[in-house]
């Protein structure tokens, strides 16, 4: 019995760590999609920018705190760059441009070896308080730190959404013509939402880098973006609570399927594909029959034009 507990505890810690990173990553997307109605299919790009910037700043001698801030700021800045050509136009242009950007960025990370070490990835950067915390307790420490960050991000977002600024965002999502008739600069509000959402993804990127202590371009494949989409839609669009629950449910599902794969007659390759087929089907079925998600409110849905 004791042995099981010894095995189970690190396992649960891992799931919770991954869930908290995904939760923050998805909260950024929920601000963009759930509260503003923006379709960002390249959210993973901002995760990558956050992770790489943090790590590279740290490797060139900056303190961790400055490096993380740099990662967050740069992610937000790229959100601005992508928003400018697209947010004045129909919502689908943002989807196309962001998904293209996330793939182009991955190519750059793979090919500019002088900057990113390409496919070899980067390791050997600092982790928060790594000299102080004993190694066997490090993940527990990280989990406490990440849960604290999650709580801060959650409450900051809740306050933001209940503020007048947040009400304007929702009004744009419901009917942009009404908001612009009331004198609100729709484009600027959307741009701010995209910047903040991207900056939050950048923070999640830094957290991911500290947790896995090694990053390479293939950590940031487009599928990560759709993991976040599934999490939001599962949890309920425009519900921050739902997003956190969704992240926990989804990450548990992912790691449990890693065990059950032993009972299915598939190769590792097929198992990976099978999991993605399930994710795709889940997206289709949820969007067709329960677009407000499991915990979402139907009135809060950005889907009625």
């Amino acid at each position: 019995m004791i042995e099981y507990v010894d095995m189970l505890l690190p396992y649960i810690t891992t799931i919770l760590l991954i869930s908290s990173i995904y939760a923050i990553f998805s909260l950024g997307l929920n601000l963009e999609w759930g509260f503003t109605g923006l379709i960002n299919f390249g959210h993973v790009a901002f995760l990558a920018i956050g992770a790489y910037t943090t790590v590279m700043f740290n490797m060139s001698g900056f303190s961790l705190f400055v490096s993380v801030i740099a990662g967050i700021v740069l992610s937000g800045f790229f959100g601005l760059l992508l928003g400018i050509p697209t947010l004045r136009l129909r919502e689908d242009y943002l989807a196309i441009v962001t998904i293209g950007f996330s793939e182009v960025l991955r190519f750059i990370l793979l090919n500019e070896q002088w900057l990113t070490r390409g496919p070899f990835g980067i390791h050997g950067f600092d982790r928060p308080l790594q000299d102080v915390i004993p190694y066997q307790y490090y993940n527990t420490f990280l989990l406490i730190l990440y849960l604290m960050i999650l709580v801060i991000v959650y409450f900051a977002l809740e306050r933001l959404i209940r503020s007048p600024w947040g009400r304007v965002l929702k009004s744009i999502r419901e009917d942009e013509e009404v908001s612009s008739a009331l004198g609100k600069n729709v484009f600027w509000y959307r741009l701010q939402s995209l910047m903040i959402g991207s900056a939050i993804a950048g923070l999640a990127g830094a957290m991911l880098a500290f947790y896995i202590s090694y990053i390479d371009p293939n950590t940031f494949k487009p599928i990560e973006t759709f993991h976040a989409w599934i999490i939001i839609i599962l949890g309920g669009t425009a519900s921050n609570k739902g997003t956190i629950v969704g992240a926990l449910v989804f990450c548990t599902f992912l790691s449990v399927t890693q065990f059950t794969s032993r009972f299915l007659p598939f190769t590792a390759h097929q198992m990976g594909a099978f999991r993605m087929i399930v994710i795709g089907l889940l997206l289709i079925i949820l969007m067709m029959h329960k677009p407000e998600g499991i915990f979402g409110k139907k009135e809060e849905l950005a889907l009625s034009d």
Partner: peptide, 16 residues
């Protein structure tokens, strides 16, 4: 259904 719904469904279909 709005076009955003259709776009997300099409992404799901692409993955499948």
């Amino acid at each position: 259904a709005s076009r955003t719904t259709l776009i997300i469904i099409s992404i799901g279909l692409a993955l499948v």
